[in-house]
Write a protein that binds this DNA or RNA. Structure first.
Length: 841
RNA sequence: GCGAGAGUGGCGGAACUGGCAGACGCGCCGGCCUUAGGAGCCGGUGGGGCAACUCGUGCGGGUUCGAGUCCCGCCUCUCGCACCA
């Protein structure tokens, strides 16, 4: 034993012992329920940062807690080791990603171990390992068969100077990150997942998940289902041509006074000759503007051009003008809208600018008088009435409420064969081709003979994996020209699986979101060379019980992850609908200045430094104590010191008590102070258990501090009291174990519970249970109120009957003056808590 | 604009299904110990008032014996989406 708490001398020792005993291995407790706790897959930068430390602190507390509860806990770890950062670093520094990546992993892994994170390293995976990514290729081929993977043309960012395609991250303010040239748009073929096929399944699945509302809302919004009507507006004097629109407000169709189409709408070719030049110029202008503004930028003012075309409103039979407008998106719905300026803000803004007619057809009430006034006010204020209401000036539909009219008008359109109900989604298919080197090769070859149109011939499954070739970094990873793999002639040139003749491999690689879409399942069976994972393993451990990671993954990763799970079920690999039942999105860690930690701000605090100075237990306690898991937290050196001091006090508390524990007896006979200590300890067991179940780590730690404070300064009077103190300290240490495991192991041993074998380890590992007799209170403090204001407090037996409690409350000296001479109208008694006298006057 | 979340001491934050607001920690104040302490220990700490008491959970209403908690109407902040028809 040492005099002072010195984390450096105890933490590595216990980390070594945990590793030696393999206490963290999953799968050993076949009879027990499983518990799968997972942190989001990290990109292996060379050093763990605070955000990582926070995630792993959370998952590790859960892993250790449930292991102690006797569950078969799976807490695995792996590396998202493919991707752009490694490739960009290679382009800049000329170091091959395959060299850099293992170094980064080793360094990061050291940090994870130094934090005392209890990981089953026998299941470690790295996505850049061919034994991992071969299964990406396997999935690709299966999904190609099912029609979930397909080839399409799509627009990409292209740098004309580097002659290469750029990822969105490589475009800065519309300029190439490398050479600063203006980025162009270009159409190229790419591979895509038909995730839209699962839009409704992904939407419905959200209902059953125990996920933060914020994330659920973002996913719902991202999928963006909207139900409406597609309906044709015939063009006037243009033969049979008609413009199809999508609307969710069919009830307003009698108010459609013009149409608006996207600037590149195909039917604009029917526009009168004299308009063609103007329309072409407009389309070009809008395209250029969109490109320059980039994504997320505020769109300019609404703008349009009268196409000269005229359409007929199929319900009013009136002729209405057709405009090309910048606010209509060619990629959504039919690329054309019926404009109802009276009932749509956007349509009104446009109509106002170009002086198009506004016709109100829905009103808030079916009362003529009210309506006229309301309508006048709307016109005077130049406001659209966008709420549902009652129809007027709408022929046979007048008087109907909007909700009903929507359906009735849709039915009528269907009857007349000019429209049909339609559903639109914001969700787009997931294009996953990347013109990069450091990713999973797409297992496709192109053969001029067997595949003249270059649709792609799948590589046979038994030829997987298609392994990335080794390359000369300086020659291949230039960031310029054709895709990197196309430059590796020894690799790109291959033989056709069909004819055996010369063929070329697909030069593109997969988006790294593919890697992270299913890694959680590979952990179950990481060495399987027949399948991504066995059905047996899946049935044992899926789904993930708690998934922890940053809210920045709310849509992309978490949507792909869910999508992939649905595909895996379709393939019969597993029988779950959703990959993770519960999601915890942890808040960000801010620096000393209250700003988000970042290198550029110079406010980064490194976990490595904190562990070096205070030890992992302090780092863990600080991180868990500073804020609830889901909230942002500020870094505070003082609070870190505070946790270090707490651990120091605990150390001295136990070591100071050791001599007093000699000659202890069964605590059952303890009285007075010692009995109170036992009670406090058992109550803390009950409390902390509940707090850990609820992921309330900050209050769990404060409960331990309370117990520690209560036990400080106790002088056991007899043998039973000594036993009581020993019991209370042992419980305190056991409760501490998931949170500050090294300290707990050390003190547990000091308290005479040696941990030399795996079985002894399991003694500490068993989670304590509270003795109900000690948790129950026999004497309680009851608050006494008069007219809802606190006037006194009484101590009384918990079991005292109500009239006794009432009498004692009324007799309390502090309460008496407030009741004197008053008439008591009512007395509210809440057992064990409070008495409230309601008096007159 | 739409969606989600949050407003409680000097600070981070507690408060189970309405029941003693401010647990726990930081900071601060006082004391002890010490050659010394930026170590440790003990005590205090929402505002006002000597006190009895009183005021206090973003603002304004309401329900209730009783509201940080429930209802209605606002304000502010954070995050996400943003011409989605």
């Amino acid at each position: 034993m040492q005099d002072r708490y010195d984390p450096k001398s105890i933490e590595p020792k216990w980390q070594q012992r945990w590793a030696d005993l393999s206490v963290d291995k999953a799968g050993g407790r076949t009879g027990a329920p499983k518990y799968y706790v997972l942190a989001m897959l990290p990109y292996p930068s060379g050093e763990m940062h605070m955000g990582h430390a926070r995630v792993y602190s959370i998952t590790d507390v859960l892993a250790r807690y449930y292991r102690k509860k006797g569950l078969d806990v799976l807490h695995p770890f792996g590396w998202d080791s493919f991707g752009l950062p490694a490739e960009n670093a290679a382009i800049k520094e000329g170091v091959h990603p395959a060299l850099r990546t293992p170094r980064n992993i080793a360094s990061f892994k050291q940090d994870v171990i130094a934090m005392g994170i209890s990981v089953d390293w026998s299941r470690e995976i790295a996505t850049s390992d061919p034994e991992y990514y071969r299964w990406n290729q396997w999935f690709f081929l299966k999904m190609l068969e099912l029609g979930i993977v397909y080839r399409r043309r799509s627009k990409v960012n292209f740098c004309p100077s580097c002659n290469t395609v750029l990822a969105n991250e490589q475009v800065e303010d519309g300029l190439c990150w490398r050479c600063g040239s203006k980025v162009l748009e270009r159409e190229i073929p790419e591979w895509a997942f038909r995730i839209t096929r699962y839009a409704d399944a992904l939407l419905e699945g959200l209902e059953k998940l125990d996920w933060p509302e914020r994330v659920v809302a973002m996913q719902r919004n991202w999928i963006g289902r909207s139900d409406g009507l597609e309906i044709d507006f015939p063009l006037v004097d243009s033969g049979n041509a008609k413009i199809r629109v999508f609307t969710t407000r069919a009830d307003t169709i009698f108010g459609a006074t013009y149409m608006a189409v996207a600037p590149d709408h195909p039917l604009l070719k029917l526009a009168p000759a004299e308009k063609k030049a103007e329309l072409a110029a407009f389309a070009e202008k809008i395209r250029a503007a969109k490109k320059a503004l980039g994504e997320g930028a505020q769109m300019a003012e609404k703008e349009g051009v009268d196409t000269g075309l005229r359409a007929r409103n199929p319900f009013t039979n009136q002729e209405i003008p057709v405009w090309a407008a910048n606010f209509v998106l060619s990629g959504y719905g039919t690329g054309a809208v019926m404009s109802v300026p009276a009932h749509d803000e956007r349509d009104l803004e446009f109509a106002t600018r170009y002086q198009l007619p506004v016709k109100y057809v829905v009103r808030p009430s079916d009362d003529e008088e009210v309506t006229v006034v309301a309508a006048r006010k709307l016109v005077a204020d130049q406001k659209a009435y966008t709420d549902y209401g009652f129809l007027f000036d709408s022929g046979q539909f007048s008087g109907m409420p909007s909700a009903q009219a929507r359906l009735a008008i849709a039915a009528e359109a269907q009857r007349r064969a000019i429209g049909k109900p339609a559903v639109n989604y914001h969700l787009r298919d997931w294009g996953f081709s990347r013109q990069r080197y450091w990713g999973t090769p797409i297992p496709i070859v192109y053969c001029d003979k067997d595949d003249p149109e270059h649709k792609g011939i799948p590589v046979p499954v038994d030829q997987l994996p298609v392994v990335l070739p080794d390359i000369d970094v300086k020659e291949v990873l230039t960031g310029m020209g054709e895709p990197p793999l196309a430059k590796v002639s020894s690799w790109i040139n291959t033989t056709c699986p069909k004819c055996g003749g010369p063929a070329r491999r697909e030069a593109e690689t997969m988006d790294t979101f593919v890697d992270s879409a299913w890694y959680f399942a590979r952990y179950l069976d990481p060495k399987n060379d027949q399948l991504p994972f066995s059905r047996e393993a899946a049935d044992r451990f899926l789904p993930v019980d708690v998934y922890v990671g940053g809210p920045e993954h709310a849509v992309m990763h978490l949507l792909y992850f869910r999508f992939w799970t649905k595909v895996m079920k379709e393939l019969g690999l597993c029988n779950i609908d959703e990959p993770a039942q519960r999601l915890v999105t942890q808040g960000i860690v801010k620096g000393r200045d209250g700003e988000k930690m970042s290198k550029s701000k110079g406010n980064v605090v490194s976990p490595r430094d904190i562990i070096g100075r205070y030890g992992a237990d302090t780092a863990r306690l600080f991180i868990l104590f500073a804020a609830p898991a889901e909230k942002d937290m500020d870094w505070s050196d003082e609070q870190v010191e505070g946790q270090y001091r707490f651990l120091g006090r605990l150390w001295r508390l136990v070591h100071g008590a050791l001599p007093k524990l000699e000659g202890r007896a069964d605590p059952a006979g303890a009285m007075g102070e010692a009995l109170e200590a036992r009670r406090k300890a058992h109550r803390t067991v009950a409390k902390v258990t509940q707090q850990l179940e609820r992921l309330q780590f900050n209050t769990a730690i404060s409960s331990l501090m309370e117990l520690s404070n209560a036990l400080t300064g106790l002088e056991p009077a007899d043998a039973a009291a000594k036993g009581a103190l020993h019991e209370a300290l042992s419980l305190l240490v056991q409760l501490l174990a998931p949170l500050a495991p090294h300290m707990a192991e050390e003190l547990w041993a000091e308290l005479g519970n040696s941990a030399a074998t795996r079985e002894d380890e399991l003694t500490l590992r068993a989670w304590p249970t509270a003795d109900p007799a000690l948790v129950a209170e026999d004497l309680v403090t009851v608050a006494v109120q008069v007219n809802g204001k606190l006037r006194g407090q009484i101590q009384i037996a918990a079991a005292a009957p109500e009239d006794q409690v009432r009498a004692a409350a009324a007799a309390d000296p502090k309460v008496v003056p407030w009741l004197e001479g008053k008439q008591i109208k009512k007395v509210v008694v809440i057992p064990k808590r409070l008495v409230n006298f309601v008096v007159a006057g």
